[in-house]
Simulated scan of single mutants.
Amino acid sequence: MSASLLNKRAIVTGGSRGIGAAIVRKLVEQGAQVAFTYSASPDAAKSLVDELTATGGTAFALQADSADPAGLQAAIRQAVDRLGGLDILVNNAGTLVHALIDDFSQADFDRTMAINVRAPFFAMQEAARHMQSGGRIINVSSNVAVSAAVPGASVYGLSKSALTAMTRSLAHEFAPKGITVNAIQPGPTTTDMTSGMEDFILGMVPAGRMAHASEPAALVAYLAGPDAGFINGAAVTIDGAMTA
């Protein structure tokens, strides 16, 4: 365990699986005390907590559906109470519905925007009430905010473009308070969401491989750390030159 985030208090939304779980692991590895939310994967959440506490880390899970702003804000307040404050917010929870426009339902459109755009907004609103100077907010956007990779991702791309734009605007609002707001924009990453799609995806990535979940997690940890205090309003793409 390194000490770059020693005693920092963090909450990660959607932290039980995939990139979110890798972010939780990395923050704990660097000394942070971490709360994370999950929606529909209690077994994965418990397994992650057990794994991290067994190695001496501090982590706990809170059930919250990011589509419910009031419930998400209540989970953040609960985390703040248990942690004794808040230094880092990582908005990672997201959803992807892949469908062409003729097949896209209004319900799927509304849920995508609720989880990928509305939830981060209200999470940042609540988190900022508890942060002091030196606070860090990191939003997990996507490289589709830079370039559309395939047909059928229009709504997902819209939501992630909105999240990146919101990141830049809120950086201006929070900078006078000493709080930074940045985004990472991962490309194809090996998680359960991309299982079975590797052959299709790899043809689009000049690097010839997909990212390991630990790589975007390491970028989040850097942006949350002491050396990133003057990085604010940035959107850092991590996709092996896919959108270069």
Rank of each mutant, 00 (worst) to 15 (best):
F104I: 07
R129M: 11
L100Q: 12
A44G: 00
T112A: 10
I138Y: 03
A107M: 06
A127T: 05
L62N: 08
I76T: 02
A61K: 10
A123E: 03
D103F: 07
R111L: 14
Q78R: 13
S39A: 14
S47Y: 00
D102C: 03
N92E: 10
K46Y: 00
A40G: 10
F121V: 01
S147I: 00
D102N: 13
S39C: 14
A61G: 12
G85Q: 07
L62K: 09
S41E: 14
Q125W: 03
A74S: 15
T95F: 07
A79P: 13
G135K: 05
L72Q: 03
Q78H: 10
A59W: 06
S133A: 15
R136M: 07
G71M: 06
D50A: 14
P120T: 12
L100H: 09
T55M: 14
V140F: 05
D87A: 07
M113E: 04
G94I: 06
A61H: 12
A74T: 15
M124Y: 02
A45N: 12
I137Y: 02
G57L: 11
F36T: 04
M113S: 00
A40Y: 00
V28H: 04
I101G: 00
A145E: 07
A64E: 09
V49H: 06
A67P: 02
R136T: 01
Q63N: 13
A99W: 01
F36C: 09
R118F: 01
G85C: 04
R118L: 08
A79N: 13
G71Y: 05
A99R: 12
P120C: 11
F121M: 09
A99V: 06
Y38W: 14
L48I: 10
S142E: 09
N139K: 07
I137S: 01
N116W: 02
T58V: 15
D68E: 08
L72E: 04
A99S: 14
I138Q: 03
A128I: 03
R25I: 08
S147C: 03
E29A: 14
A75E: 07
F122D: 01
M124K: 00
A74V: 06
Q30T: 10
Q63P: 11
S141A: 15
G134N: 03
I138P: 03
D110M: 02
E126L: 02
P42C: 10
G84C: 11
A32F: 06
G71E: 07
T55V: 15
N139D: 11
N143E: 15
G31T: 06
V49F: 04
R136Q: 12
Q132D: 13
I88R: 07
I137A: 02
V117Y: 02
D108G: 08
M113L: 15
Q63Y: 04
I137G: 01
R111F: 05
A32H: 04
R25P: 05
V117I: 11
R129L: 13
A70V: 05
I115N: 04
N139S: 11
V144M: 07
F36H: 09
E126C: 09
D68H: 03
